[in-house]
Amino acid sequence: MDRCPARVPADDPQDLTGDRLDLPGAALSILAIGLGCYTLTAGVEHGWTSGPVWASAVGAAVALGAFVWHERRTPEPMLDLGVFADGTVRGAAIAQVGTSIAMAGVMFGLILHFQYAYGWSPMRAGLANLPLIITMILATPLSEYLAKRFGHRIACVIGAGFLAGSLAGLAWAVDHGYPAIAVFMVTLTIGLRTVMTICAVALVGAMPSNRTSIGTALNDSAQEIGTSVGTAVIGTMIAALVTTSLPPGVWGSDLVASFFRGERIAFAVLAVVVGVVSVWGALALNDSRATDEHP
């Protein structure tokens, strides 16, 4: 029987790069994402035509432009924008953004739904999310089967269909009780696991052998961006459609009805946005049938 090594073997120098940290690029990316998300959330509070909102929007655009300008000119960029010339890299990153928008939007919306509209305790509300967690674990073989059977492009399109269809289903289910919601939580997670798994494999596999860490970081960054955008969008829509300040304690029937109506519209909008973004990214993938994150 092989024995476990006493230590992690040293990296092969040929697989490493000597690039320095791109601190200006990191700062500009944080500024662009932060100001962009703040713009989405501040519009409801201050008004979409207010000075702070416009200043934030302009700041986000300027920071994004400066980031792109800097990354194209620095000899050691944090993110080599040339990698996006590869359709697989570009498509996988875009689709990952779509999945994270869906996941963040649903998680944010349903926590409010369970704890405030239903009046459940935090423990019960947490347990209500078990369909998401269990399906995320059990759906891995299905996502691998789809990739091997149809290839990355078609399998990812199927996953995107699950995402959009499940969000549309949740828009209907919000006022039809927890069992209806749980069904679409399961189908949503099948779509999440399928797209997330395939895109992670495709993105890392498209990178040169000494740049796979960049592929992993890009995959994670795309998910983080999608999570930030999804949370900001669903929070903004609920604030705009329901109320800017959700009262603590048990809600009255009028507020619950208003929340369900706002949630229904928000999930329907997410269904369109996530469907477009995820399918757009999926169609850029190739027909690889790989299921391991290795180049």
Score class of each variant (00 low, 15 high):
3 R>L: 13
4 C>M: 12
4 C>A: 15
8 V>R: 14
12 D>C: 08
23 L>N: 02
24 P>K: 08
27 A>M: 09
29 S>C: 05
29 S>M: 12
30 I>C: 09
38 Y>D: 09
39 T>W: 10
41 T>G: 05
47 G>C: 13
49 T>C: 07
51 G>V: 15
53 V>A: 00
54 W>R: 09
55 A>V: 07
62 V>F: 04
62 V>S: 10
64 L>Q: 04
69 W>V: 01
78 M>V: 03
79 L>A: 01
80 D>W: 11
83 V>A: 03
84 F>D: 00
86 D>S: 11
88 T>P: 08
90 R>K: 10
92 A>L: 08
94 I>R: 03
95 A>P: 14
97 V>G: 13
106 V>K: 03
109 G>N: 10
121 S>Y: 04
125 A>E: 00
133 I>S: 15
139 A>S: 02
140 T>Y: 10
141 P>W: 06
144 E>Q: 12
145 Y>S: 08
147 A>P: 12
150 F>Y: 10
151 G>Y: 07
154 I>C: 08
155 A>Q: 10
157 V>S: 15
160 A>Q: 11
163 L>Q: 02
165 G>I: 02
169 G>V: 07
171 A>G: 12
175 D>H: 15
179 P>C: 00
184 F>Q: 02
185 M>D: 12
188 L>D: 14
189 T>W: 13
196 M>I: 13
208 P>Y: 11
208 P>T: 06
211 R>C: 00
213 S>E: 12
215 G>N: 04
216 T>L: 02
218 L>D: 05
223 Q>L: 06
228 S>V: 08
229 V>G: 04
229 V>W: 08
230 G>L: 02
246 L>P: 14
249 G>L: 07
249 G>V: 07
250 V>H: 15
256 V>Q: 05
256 V>P: 03
257 A>W: 13
262 G>E: 14
262 G>D: 06
265 I>Q: 11
266 A>Y: 05
267 F>V: 07
269 V>I: 14
269 V>W: 11
274 V>R: 03
278 S>Y: 02
280 W>E: 05
284 A>E: 01
287 D>P: 10
290 A>F: 14
291 T>G: 07
293 E>D: 09
294 H>I: 02
294 H>W: 00
295 P>R: 11
295 P>M: 01
